[in-house]
Nucleic acid binder design. Structure first.
Ligand SMILES: [Zn+2]
Ligand SMILES: [Zn+2]
Ligand SMILES: [Zn+2]
Ligand SMILES: [Zn+2]
Lengths: 144, 144
DNA sequence: ATCTTAAATGATAATCATTATCAATTAGGA
DNA sequence: TCCTAATTGATAATGATTATCATTTAAGAT
């Protein structure tokens, strides 16, 4: 997995540095979790104290440009990152207003909306669906 | 319209100040446009040079809390505001990667996604759908 | 209409995520 | 090994937003 990402870096003439590998490893370790730049920085620092926060931001920007990671905001005033899916089409997210947890949702009804727009002459390159509310653990606390 | 918003302020024991009225007026003037706090600040300043940017932020936060305006981010690193719809359920947005224009989309296929989650015990209070791509004016420039 | 007072305001500083700068380091090809 | 452009880390800068606090004001009581 890590190797295949390094191949993409190579293919695009970007150097495979210790820092970039460490960042990719940290993200792999947290697969399925939506990490902030700072989450990644803190984790990498454990085994690599010299790493700079700028390198983390720069690397994530690069990985996003290469379609290795997907950068998205859940309206918290900061961005979160996760690995892209192979198909290039993203799953959706449910954000709990109670505990803040972000839960992935597989269902996809967006084709309808997309084709309606494409008929009107738009080109759709990406979409984002975020649902907000209460997860089963928080719903009782909320309705009490 | 403005009067009905003032009524909501009154009902909730908030004062109806010149600043709050000016901000609501600026937003009414730009109905259908998705304004940033600074857009509103700049506009109100024309006829009300003493207004402070803090007041704009504070007022928007209050109006959002009262469900008068809806605050949303289009991943630009800042928030945009528009009046809530009566139903409490928002339209969707198409963001053009070319010119940055934000176009409203009425179609709503989200019930499906929402009921699927509700069956699993979640409570959905809000959703956000944002599509990205190229609008008809920008698509040729893009595919050239 | 005046008084009272808690709410609201504006100037300013603080915060926080992110980006830019730049001298020093380094990956990877010759 | 050498060369060099890419990369890095420290630091400063930015830009949006929030906090602080002395001053002003809306709106209810007199
Ligand atoms: Zn929860
Ligand atoms: Zn996800
Ligand atoms: Zn466009
Ligand atoms: Zn809208």
């Amino acid at each position: 997995m890590l190797d295949s990402y390094c191949k993409v870096l190579n293919k695009n003439r970007f150097k495979v540095t210790r820092q970039r590998k460490a960042i990719l490893e940290a993200m792999e370790k947290a697969h399925g979790v939506h990490l902030t730049a700072d989450d990644i920085y803190m984790d990498v620092k454990q085994n690599f104290p010299e790493i700079g926060i700028s390198t983390v931001y720069r690397t994530l920007e690069l990985l996003a440009r290469l379609n290795i990671v997907h950068k998205t905001s859940f309206d918290e005033g900061k961005f979160r990152y996760e690995f892209c899916e192979d198909e290039g089409h993203y799953h959706h997210h449910f954000v709990c207003n109670g505990c803040g947890s972000i839960i992935e949702v597989e269902e996809d009804f967006l084709h309808h909306l997309e084709s309606a727009l494409e008929e009107r002459g738009f080109i759709i390159t990406d979409h984002k669906v975020q649902l907000y509310g209460y997860c089963p653990e928080c719903r009782d606390r909320h309705t009490e």
